[in-house]
Simulated scan of single mutants.
Amino acid sequence: MKRSKWVNVARELKGNKLGIAAVILLLIIALAAIFAFLSSKDPNQLNALERLKPPSKDHWFGTDDYGRDTFARALYGGRISLMVGVLSMLFATVIGVTVGVISGYFGGWIDGLLMRILDIIMSIPSFLILLLLSVYLKPNVSSIIMIISLLMWMSIARVVRAETMTLKEREYVLYAKASGQSTFGIIRKHILPGLISVVIVSATNNIASAIMMESSLSFLGFGVRQPQATWGSMLNGAQGYIAQAPYMALFPGLLIFLTVLCFNILGDILRIGLEPKLGKR
């Protein structure tokens, strides 16, 4: 990728106070999740005497219906939620880029077949597929990552296909074909480097989508099982105590909202910096 594009990103970020705040907040949330083990509280320790305690200096986010420290559970839950978001994005990107490049570069019946398969999958409500798969698969982190990855690659594939169809008509690619370079070599040297910008932008937005999907599944009880915590499962556990202990839903809900918002803001900044023409639309 050209260095000037990253200069554009830095310039766009520097002039965007909201973007700077989003990056700082994401770093704080990520570091807090990574170093959750430094917390003095055990996220799974039950204490019947401390049930539904409001936020205090001993329990910053209060305690849940089992007397567990909500702050500690939010830290460890953030680790799982962020891990699901990032890994789902990576797997979805690999699948989407592979399908998109093959479809866009070769065209013809291969393109037609892959796009019809993609259209069929996209015509089915994704949340319905999520629920069906979660019922038949063992509810754990790896299965949730796999399910979300299989549902997110289509959007990346479409973007990559369109960009590949443009790149393969560039003069340097046509020259590479005429000079007898192998198909794999052309894709590796000329097509993939030209896709980095659009892939980065799509991947950033997909992290936010993956976190929302995981939170929705956990909220409905189809995600990671107890005693493991995610922000979505904490919201699920708070349903019966909204009136009595609203803080149980407030803090994990706020973390989900802020994390998704920050990734969306960062995605917009990357889109404008890496693809200025798209940013002006």
Rank of each mutant, 00 (worst) to 15 (best):
N206W: 01
G112F: 04
I186V: 09
R271H: 00
I24P: 03
L258V: 15
M248R: 08
K17N: 06
V260A: 10
M152H: 11
Y172P: 04
I256F: 10
F106I: 11
G67R: 07
V86D: 10
M89D: 12
L38N: 15
P193F: 06
G107S: 06
L151S: 12
W231V: 01
S40D: 15
F263V: 04
K41Y: 09
T98M: 05
G78F: 10
S126L: 00
D268R: 10
G180H: 02
G253L: 05
I186C: 07
Q226M: 05
L13M: 10
G232Y: 14
S155Q: 15
I24C: 12
T230C: 07
R116K: 14
I145D: 14
W60F: 15
F251P: 02
S182N: 10
I256S: 03
A243P: 01
A238R: 00
V99Y: 14
S40T: 15
I29M: 14
S197H: 04
L174N: 14
S4K: 09
L128T: 08
N264I: 00
I29F: 13
G253F: 04
S182A: 06
I29Y: 14
L195C: 06
E171P: 01
A48G: 05
M234P: 08
L46K: 05
P193Q: 04
L255Y: 04
A210I: 10
T63P: 09
A178R: 14
I145P: 12
V23S: 00
L13A: 11
P227M: 03
G180T: 10
L266D: 12
G194M: 00
T164K: 02
S88H: 04
E275M: 03
S39G: 14
S155E: 15
I265E: 12
M213L: 12
E163T: 09
L220R: 03
K177Y: 10
D64T: 05
I211H: 03
